[in-house]
Structures are given as structure tokens and as C-alpha cells.
Design a protein around this nucleic acid. Structure first.
Lengths: 170, 170
DNA sequence: AAAAATTAGTTTATATATAAAATATTTCGT
DNA sequence: ACGAAATATTTTATATATAAACTAATTTTT
């Protein structure tokens, strides 16, 4: 502890030279509100998935990816599409395997890669959840008009484009 | 519900009677884009916090709450403000305690409650991170004009208001 | 005041998530 | 063809998060 460390006022190092105007607070407020909205909606979806279908959101997301790719996906492709680490996908797939919702098959020619795809049970489970999921999302956005949704969609496009994405290889 | 709802085609007989029009896809697309934006920005913030300050986002968020409440907060208040479970707060506080960034004190009159507050070191750490954090957020939203930020802020207000929140006690 | 209910918090079991190291396997340079 | 580099995935250690069960203290009821 410092002997004389009362109030360290005005301790602003010159590292962040971005013109920090009063807009900063606007940015922060928008960011916090954005976070709040997403967290509230996501929480609802998680709770509904658990209560109504006894499944978690990450597992549902994984099933959704596989549903879109009938030929199956490799672990790496799943990792990239879900934007999570490889190790995370390993754990998720193991749990879904033990639940019988997905299956693995080897690829000829490359013994490192494995193709993951939905089982019939997995497909059935996913199809049974989808309409409810769509309804929840619909309800979550019910307070915005169609025009407002369009505006929001456009703003989010710009926001997304502004995030520098390193590389994405499908 | 509006009796004159447009094309209520193929209403499912069962549970989800909400008129599922073609708008559903719009909702889903907006939701997915919203999620993507938040995930991209949050990932950047997490990485920057780890690389530049060797701290995690949940710990930073907790410090931020304590910084705003100089008198300290109880575990329950922290749990409510951060919108996470009690047990989660217990773990976070234990780690921050062992890092010397926060401290606990008993309250007279109620031996169940403990007040958590920032230590000098915690306050120092938080103050050193804040400007960088603001700059990251500023940069994340740089692709939107001031007007667009205002519009977005308004739309998010409506969206947030549309989520039914049970109760919130400050 | 004793029993019942509420409140505050921790503990436990489990799931999700990451980073970094480890293990295979394939491909590339020479 | 051989060693080096790259690729695909798993393993390990750790952090975050929840729900449900539990402990302890305070209030409320009767």
C-alpha cells in the first residue's frame, strides 16, 4: 500500500489517444443496453429450452448447425461456425453422443477428421423444438414494428461490419 | 391479439397459437445478427482485458459495480445487479478476495449479510482499466454515426421494455 | 416464546468455455 | 523418402455459470 495514496485524480496515461470526446458515454450506454437486451432474451430462451425440452442452448445451437448441413460437419467446422474453441466442441459432442442425438463417422483418406451428423432422434428432437424457438424469438421482438426491425437489422449490419474479423474459412 | 391478423396460415393447433406469419424469419435474422454483434464485441473486450490487464470480464464487471457503490454492496445486491446467481457471486468474490482487490465486512444487526467493497488496490486496478475499456467500446461502435447511435439506443429501449422483467430491487 | 416462514449466503453437482499443451496424422520442402 | 511444418482433434487446468440442496440468521405467526 502506498503511504500517500489519497485520491488518484487525473491519472490519465496517454496511451489511448483516440479522441475521447463526450461521445464515449453514448457508446458505453448503447453497449450496456445492447448487452442487457441480449442477456434478457438469451436467458428466456435458455430457461424455455430447459423447462420445455430439457436441453441446453449450446446443444440446441449445435443441432441447428448440423441440421443445416445434412452431409455432416467436422469438429473444426463446428468450432468455426459456432465461434467456440475446439475443446468446447469436443465436450458438447461427447454429451450429445451419449444422448444419441448425433453420430460420428470417419472420413476415408484422413484419419484425423471425423464427420458429425444428426441421428434420426437428433433430427426429430431439433424439429420438435424449432417452432417453439421461433415463437419465443418472435415474442421477444414483438415490441418492435416491422419498420423498426428493418432499421435495427441495417444498423446491426453496419455494426457487425465494423468489427474486424481476422479470417473465416468455410 | 388482433382478430384481423394478416395471413394466419397454418396455425399449429397446439401450444403456440401466436400468428406465425412470414415475419418469423425476420425476427430470427435480427436475433442472430444481434447475437453475433454482441459476441464479437464481447470477445474483443475479454481478450483485451486478459492480454492488457490480466483480468477477466466477470471480475471487471464486479469491480465496476463496487466502484459505483462506494459504501459497498451485499452479496445479494451484487447478484441482482450483475444478473447472475448467488453462487456465482460467491465464487467471484472468493477469487477477488485472494487477489486482494475486494474486502468483506460484517454488518451490525444482521449476521447473515456481509458488505463487499473495493480495496485501495481494487480501486487502483479498476481506474487503470476504465479508460482503455471505454476506448475499446468506442472503437467497436466507430462504424455508426452519432445519429445512428441515437436511433439504435431508442430501438434497444423499446426492445428492452418489451422483455417482461419480474422485479428489481435496488 | 416456540414453530413456521423468510432471507442471505454457501455448497454441490454439472455444464459450458477457454488457453495451452499434447497427440495423431497429413503434407511439404528438399 | 525423410524431417519439418501444418492440420485436426483431444486433453488438461482453470474460470464462469446455474439449479438445487443446504446452513444459518432473522422475522412472522400463532
Amino acid at each position: 500500500m502506498d503511504a500517500n495514496a489519497p485520491n488518484a485524480i487525473g491519472n490519465k496515461p496517454g496511451d489511448f489517444e483516440t479522441a475521447l470526446t463526450s461521445d464515449d458515454r453514448v457508446d458505453l450506454r448503447v453497449w450496456l443496453r445492447l448487452l442487457t437486451c441480449v442477456n434478457l432474451i438469451e436467458r428466456t430462451v435458455r430457461n424455455n429450452l430447459r423447462e420445455d425440452f430439457d436441453i441446453t442452448l449450446p446443444r440446441f445451437d449445435l443441432l441447428a448447425q448440423l441440421d443445416r448441413a445434412p452431409k455432416g460437419l467436422s469438429m473444426g467446422q463446428l468450432s468455426r461456425r459456432l465461434m467456440v474453441s475446439n475443446g468446447n466442441v469436443t465436450g458438447l459432442i461427447n454429451r450429445l453422443l451419449s444422448e444419441g442425438l448425433v453420430e460420428r463417422s470417419h472420413i476415408r483418406g484422413d484419419r484425423r477428421t471425423q464427420l458429425v451428423s444428426l441421428t434420426a432422434a437428433g433430427k426429430r428432437a431439433f424439429d420438435s423444438i424449432t417452432p417453439a424457438h421461433a415463437a419465443w424469438i418472435s415474442e421477444a421482438f414483438a415490441s418492435l414494428s416491422r419498420d423498426e426491425m428493418t432499421t435495427l437489422y441495417g444498423l446491426l449490419a453496419k455494426l457487425k461490419a465494423g468489427q474486424i474479423k481476422p479470417d473465416e474459412r468455410p
